[in-house]
Amino acid sequence: MEKAVKTKEITGWLHLDPRTKLAMLVLFSVVVMIDVVDGPAYAIRVVMTFIPVFLVCLEGRVHIGARFTLLYVFATWLMQFTQKNIHGVAGMLLLFVCYMIMQFAPTIITVWYCISTTKISEFMAAMSRIRVPQGIAISIAVMMRFFPTLGEEYRSIRDAMRMRGISFGRGKVTKMVEYRLIPLLFSTINIGDELSQAAVTRGLGAPVERTNISEIGFHARDFLIVLVMLILTILYVYFTVEGGNVIL
């Protein structure tokens, strides 16, 4: 085994513009904001949920799309099953879980899709095009880069806790939090310092207009996706208003 994991390209062949992804996120959040459980609006919601799933599959991560679909279908089925057959506290808990899955899982997969297919330089380019101040763009870019790092650090800490048998903080909730959070913060400070040093010695923060070599721009596919999402969102809002739901 030469490499532990054969690596794949970050951006798939679709190369959507980061701004398209942003628009997708915004439109999607409008849908998430308003709740419906049946009728045409619900159908639209399901369709919109599966647009990012479809995109994920197109980018070659079919297994993730499949797993999400399975989870979603299962949650839908379980919800209906519970409504008919299980009552009381257990039923309520089940319902709540299903509800949360159906409410947030679509957002999570959309966010995941957007982050995992966007290069930092593309993101910086898009931010400067929509005139977000560079400082804020840097902060957000660092966040995007830092989530996986946080995951790596957390996994090491969790392993260390398992080795010492303190995963459950010896029965104390406060210790459970403390033993995870404190080492994580110590690592974070180190990584933050080292990252800052590496970045400033390579000229980050220079008061010149930053060049962005990433080719970003709208293509037919970007327009198509935004258009479809926009129409669906408008229809969704229309149907929910018809149905008497209050709009925020």
């Binding site: 930092i120 330089s121 996986p148 790092t149 923060g205 962005n212």
Partner: peptide, 19 residues
């Protein structure tokens, strides 16, 4: 582990000159 800013290798090479 802690001295790269981008998430992809190409972006990392061009990071400095872009700055």
């Amino acid at each position: 582990r802690s001295q790269f800013f981008s998430v992809d290798t190409d972006g990392e090479i061009t990071f400095g000159p872009e700055n």
